[in-house]
């Protein structure tokens, strides 16, 4: 169906996909909060939420509803516009990252190939990198607009931390790029589908990326910006109602996306072993692939939580030293080694 030289099926298909991905992110994020409590409880030998619904499964809905109906307070000394802009940016950025992740291979519906990736751009990794970098604005603006000393300090800390860990992250990605020769996530996954997972070639790169992902998401042990015992709760100290919710939500969405990204880049994405030799219908394989990705992602989300409740929080100077003095040289080393090995094998 083309009208005005626009392929409307394409639009519909993409709109549906986008809605699906957004809803998925939100749902996963919501249930991550539940999951986190359950994991924490399990690790600490407690019950965790168990009142609202079966095993407390309705707890996230209750929390969300509560946030909606809370009073919205904007401190009188704050900058009103920026105060609202901060969480909005945080949320917006969190929602945008998922655009280039290939959630699965191509489905064929009514003879029409439908890619489970919203946009296959040839600079996929750079896009994620760029969008994630914007996330720091949300925190920075939010913290500054509050006009609260703790918030400001927390947001400055957060900004420093995020940008510091972006460097080793970028370097780790460069090593990956040398391996794959492409920045398109789809290509990266396809390469792993026909070969070994990248984590085999890039164990160090994976490790660096993982640590940086922790820091980028402000997750423990790097959750300095919201260190409640130092900073009264961090950059969202002055926030209430859904604006607070946005900050919290954005963090969980980021965690989800990071996990998906790690799975995609280092663990084969939607590829799973022997997927091409099962002899099943391609559509089935695609759906299985999606499930594979989902499981990998869930594992990493679990891993995030596991670490949070196991490893104590870093001190700020330790955090920065780790980032600058260990991760950056390590990432550089990783990059050079990767390059040298590939060149050596090439000859």
């Amino acid at each position: 169906m083309t009208l005005l030289s626009i392929d409307w099926f394409f639009i519909i298909e993409k709109v549906l996909l986008i809605s699906g991905v957004l809803v998925l992110s939100l749902v996963v994020a919501m249930y991550s909060t539940w999951g986190e409590r359950k994991v924490a409880a399990w690790i600490q030998d407690r019950f965790g939420p168990n009142r609202a619904g079966f095993m407390g499964l309705l707890q996230p809905l209750a929390d969300g509803g509560k946030l909606f109906f809370k009073e919205e307070i904007i401190p009188s000394t704050s900058n009103r516009f920026l105060f609202i802009l901060g969480p909005s940016i945080a949320m917006l950025v969190a929602c945008m990252t998922s655009a280039v992740i290939p959630w699965g291979d191509t489905l064929v519906i009514a003879g029409r190939p439908v890619s489970l990736q919203i946009a296959d751009v040839n600079i996929g990794i750079l896009f994620i990198f760029g969008v994630v970098s914007m996330g720091v604005y949300g925190i920075m603006i939010g913290g500054w607009a509050s006009n609260n000393k703790f918030s400001l300090l927390a947001s400055v800390r957060a900004a420093s931390q995020i940008i510091s860990y972006e460097l080793p992250m970028g370097l780790a990605l460069i090593a990956l790029l040398m391996l794959t020769g492409s920045l398109s996530l789809k290509d990266i996954v396809e390469q792993q589908r026909h070969g070994l997972w990248n984590v085999v070639y890039q164990p160090l790169g994976f490790f660096i990326f993982l640590i940086c992902a922790f820091a980028e998401c402000n997750r423990a042990p790097f959750d300095l910006p919201e260190a409640e015992n130092e900073l009264n709760g961090g950059y969202h100290l002055e926030y209430s109602s859904m604006k607070l919710g946005f900050f919290l939500f954005a963090e969980y969405i980021n965690m989800f996306i990071s996990s998906a990204l790690i799975a995609t880049m280092y663990f084969g994405g939607y590829a799973f072993p022997w997927m091409d030799s099962l002899g099943l219908d391609p559509n089935i394989v695609t759906i299985l692939g999606f499930l594979a990705l989902f499981i990998k992602t869930l594992f990493f989300i679990f891993f995030f939580m596991w670490v949070r409740w196991t490893v104590p929080r870093f001190r700020y100077d330790q955090l920065m030293r780790l980032g600058w003095k260990i991760m950056i040289p390590l990432a550089l080393f990783n990059m050079l080694i990767t390059g040298a090995l590939i060149l050596a094998r090439q000859q």
Binding site: E72, C95, I118
Partner: peptide, 26 residues
Amino acid sequence: YFPIVLQLIAALGFVGITMLATHFLG
């Protein structure tokens, strides 16, 4: 890049609507 624009519109809509909703609900 067009789908990215679509996603941006969707995300903007989501953020905007939620913000408005919470403003009126509380």
